Computed example of a mutant assay.
Amino acid sequence: MKRLLAPATALLAIAAIALTGCSASAAGSGDDYPNRPINFSVGSEPGSGWDATARALVEVIEREDAVPVQVNVQNRPGAVGCVLLNDMINRHADADNEIAMTSVPLQSMELRGQCDVHYTDVTVIARLLIENFLVAVPADSEFQDLGALLDAIAADPQSVPIAASGDDQLPLALLVDAAGGNPSAINFIEFESGGEYLTALMNGDVVASVSGVTEYGAQIEAGELQGLAVLSEERLEAPLADIPTAVELGYDVTLNNWRGVYGPPNMPDYAVEYWQAKLQELLETPSWQEIADRNQWGTAYLAGDELQTFLDESYAQLQTALESVGAAG
């Protein structure tokens, strides 16, 4: 049974919120916006995909001298972004100087019953990119192909600990389901960041991990990890071109993650419009293209009505996928 989770361009993956902030009324009108530092929050630890994307954007802003005020990245981990979401809603409603990274957990945590925030409770500003999921193991792992890993999970799930949190669990759940196993029996070990995933892999605390390419690409290229499969429709580009797709291996599962930027509820229109235009401008710079190519990110900007359509379709498809593997709340 085909497990395709993507509305036209793709689906899935970073969330964030700010520690300080005033209301939009305190900041005045948008005539001279932005006129004070911007808090760019990330709902995870340093080293995560959300963190990498936020810091990449700030790097491009600084290279291009694109924003007239300081943009400060803040890490606000907790409950796969839910802590930050609630903070944005409860402490920063109406603010014009608070933005945050987001991705699929903005929708899926509510669908899982793990966060009471709906994606319409905040102001989603723009989608930036799409990133592919991959399944990785240490280079010297006993599991040298995806089939062997899935067979081991089917035979004795508890003996095969897998590092994956939140929506990073969904790709493997769909693969196990496609292989005839029981997704609800997978022994997932949850961590807050890709750095913790990597440490657990290298220490032998887990036997495999599922995450975005950003978090493991460098280690695979260096020969420390091995990619068993990517869940894209086509193979990645070099230096990761040797990793087969799940479809090639006989598992008709494609899944990817999207990342974007959101603001607080009732963010002033002038701030939303500023960041929509500024983010689109940044994604067209050579500085961004260099970073995107290095991380194998597929730039996929959306805003306005197109973004709303994407979010609504993604929400419905994500709900169907989570229900299919018994992960809906």
Rank of each mutant, 00 (worst) to 15 (best):
G43M: 09
E45W: 07
E45I: 00
P46L: 10
G47C: 04
G47D: 02
W50S: 14
D51A: 03
D51W: 06
D51E: 05
D51S: 15
A52N: 03
T53N: 02
A54D: 01
R55A: 13
A56M: 11
A56Y: 09
L57F: 12
L57I: 02
L57P: 12
V58M: 12
V58W: 06
E59G: 14
E59P: 01
E62V: 01
E62S: 06
E62H: 04
R63V: 11
A66Y: 06
A66V: 14
V67Q: 08
V67C: 13
P68V: 12
V69R: 00
Q70N: 06
Q70G: 08
R76D: 15
R76T: 15
P77L: 12
P77K: 14
G78A: 07
G78H: 15
A79Q: 13
A79Y: 12
V80P: 02
G81W: 07
C82E: 14
C82D: 07
V83C: 11
L84M: 13
L85W: 10
M88N: 13
R91V: 05
A93S: 13
D94I: 12
A95G: 14
N97I: 05
E98F: 08
I99A: 03
A100I: 04
A100N: 07
A100R: 05
A100C: 08
M101T: 15
T102Y: 13
T102C: 15
S103I: 04
V104S: 15
V104D: 12
P105R: 11
Q107R: 09
S108H: 09
M109W: 00
E110Y: 05
R112Y: 00
G113S: 07
G113Q: 10
G113E: 01
Q114R: 14
Q114D: 02
C115N: 02
H118K: 09
Y119I: 08
Y119P: 01
T120C: 06
T120A: 07
D121V: 01
V122I: 14
T123D: 08
I125T: 00
I125C: 00
I125L: 01
A126H: 07
A126V: 08
L129N: 04
I130A: 00
E131R: 04
N132W: 06
N132M: 02
